[in-house]
Design a protein around this nucleic acid. Sequence first.
DNA 1: CACGTACCCGAAAAGGCTTTCTGAATCTAT
DNA 2: ATAGATTCAGAAAGCCTTTTCGGGTACGTG
Lengths: 344, 344
Amino acid sequence: MASQAGPAGASKATTLTDVARLAGVSIATASKALNGRAQVKAETRARVIDAAERLQFSPNALARGLLAGRSGTVGLITSDLEGRFSIPVLMGAEDAFGSGQTSVFLCDARGDAIREQHHVRALLSRRVDGLIVVGARPDPRPPLAAEVPIPVVYAYAPSEDPGDVSIVSDNVGGGRMAVEHLVACGRQRIAHISGDPTYGAAHDRERGALEALGEAGLALAGGRAYYGSWSEAWGRGATRMLLERDPDVDAIFAGSDQIARGVLDALHEAGRDVPGDVAVIGFDNWEVLATNARPPLTSVDINLEHLGRVAAQRLFAAIDGSTRSGTESLPCRVVARGSTTPLD
Amino acid sequence: MASQAGPAGASKATTLTDVARLAGVSIATASKALNGRAQVKAETRARVIDAAERLQFSPNALARGLLAGRSGTVGLITSDLEGRFSIPVLMGAEDAFGSGQTSVFLCDARGDAIREQHHVRALLSRRVDGLIVVGARPDPRPPLAAEVPIPVVYAYAPSEDPGDVSIVSDNVGGGRMAVEHLVACGRQRIAHISGDPTYGAAHDRERGALEALGEAGLALAGGRAYYGSWSEAWGRGATRMLLERDPDVDAIFAGSDQIARGVLDALHEAGRDVPGDVAVIGFDNWEVLATNARPPLTSVDINLEHLGRVAAQRLFAAIDGSTRSGTESLPCRVVARGSTTPLD
DNA sequence: CACGTACCCGAAAAGGCTTTCTGAATCTAT
DNA sequence: ATAGATTCAGAAAGCCTTTTCGGGTACGTG
């Protein structure tokens, strides 16, 4: 009873004609019966539906799409090798596209503009109804090279063209939240260790953090934000520097969870208790890193799934004719874990 | 000059008819010219190609698929929330499907059989030419619920039905390699800390390890393999237990990179030098964990991208009528890093 | 009894492309 | 010069579905 994939070609799939024949009606009637159109007697409709089921009829979406002028598919182009960002976005999008109505082509451009271009062409040829472009890093990226005749939504990384539709997470707000959380935990001497300084998002997070600090009447511990790279090693190194410069620090806001892991490591090594002596908060809420840390890492969640859902909604709206454009920032949220337990 | 997505519907895409008209030939001739068919004079062909370019013609894959009976698409159904496994597999598959010829629908079933079923139906309706099913864990999984009329290849997790086509990584071989590597590094007292004992793959890895140990005339340090969960916390705890039971251990083979991270942590805490006193090897070669570890973690790579490539090839073969079936194991490879430097 | 009105159903066109088959024109050979 | 062989272009069928529109039946009404 295994799948009976006939060699080369398989036995023709059952078509509406087959159903109509079995039900003893015309294909037009069969179509209307199956699609819930009105002009069919209840009894006839039942007969058709029964026939369709018996034959395991599944309408040919290609033919349908050809006729309708829209395929019911969208393309999702990513450059995110790890799938760290794309998969949640994809899942959110799948959610939003009420299951079954829309399917998603996932293409990985691997950061290569040529390959991206190529995928766009292929997808256009498949008549996707829209495109979601997920960038490799949160900074603005050049818009798609080709002029495409279908709606495009940029997710995670906005398009450089403000006339495009972009959905990103609010890095400023996220930075603010991180500090507000630390302040709420009673911290006063808060430092910030971030990553690659070429990332605009990193500076956004710092800006949010500074705003929140200012409002709390505090200054950045360590004198300034520490920029380096998005690695644990940098987190460790920067923490060591920081402890030397400002031994009284009682909280560290890390620019990513990877950095936060390094921070935790270095603090541990220096004999500082977390969160007793120093509280630590990360960014991204990458579960596998955050939950396995010791102690479990509080982190700012950038809500990728939601981002995907919103991107899909905006794409849908655009497909249906909405003409809204611009960059939309989605709020982050703090997921509190053991690394920032409030002081007693 | 932004994309000019007309509200609802956009201006009709250019069709072969347009090209034919501009070139002053019939659509039949235009088709033949563009597809490299023989019966067209060189000069006519050039004229058609020129017209197609001028009009930015891109053939409607829906129409083509409708006619050809195959859509040039495949479905990839996964349940791997993180995308940890699916994305590399997808990339491998994309590679194998010589770019442009085949596009991939990616669907996430989220471990839910109902949702999986649903996706299968949707994909069938879209007339995908084949299906790749990527499991959530490496153990055998039930075959697709529905009887599908197209070829299916199971990747990462094999189907329980030996009559299906499955591509998996060779866990026994991987376990063997891990130990062989440690032995090659001069280690004699090798322990094994693995994860969730309900994972058959974990036992496969142990089996391979035991084989290699036997051939080297060694026994497992710690008396037996330690099973627990796939977490850093377990890696730490098990290491502490191990050190108590068998303080002379000079190498630890961890069942996953996450566990290995915990192992490194605990060893560090216990004052053992890695790799000086104890060498550590992980499994999966999850870059973000392995390269950021201190020291960088040697790990057994399960070659997911290759797995995806092979899966795609097998699927292609099946689509073209090949009838081969059964489970195929792909070899792993050791990626040596700082945690296992040979003893001097 | 003739006619209007619902109510159902079916014929046919459309959507864009490929392919086969036919036909016309050019060329070769006798 | 004419029969036969090539070469190239076009007409048309077909893939599968949806939808419009016209026709048929049954029924109620004047």
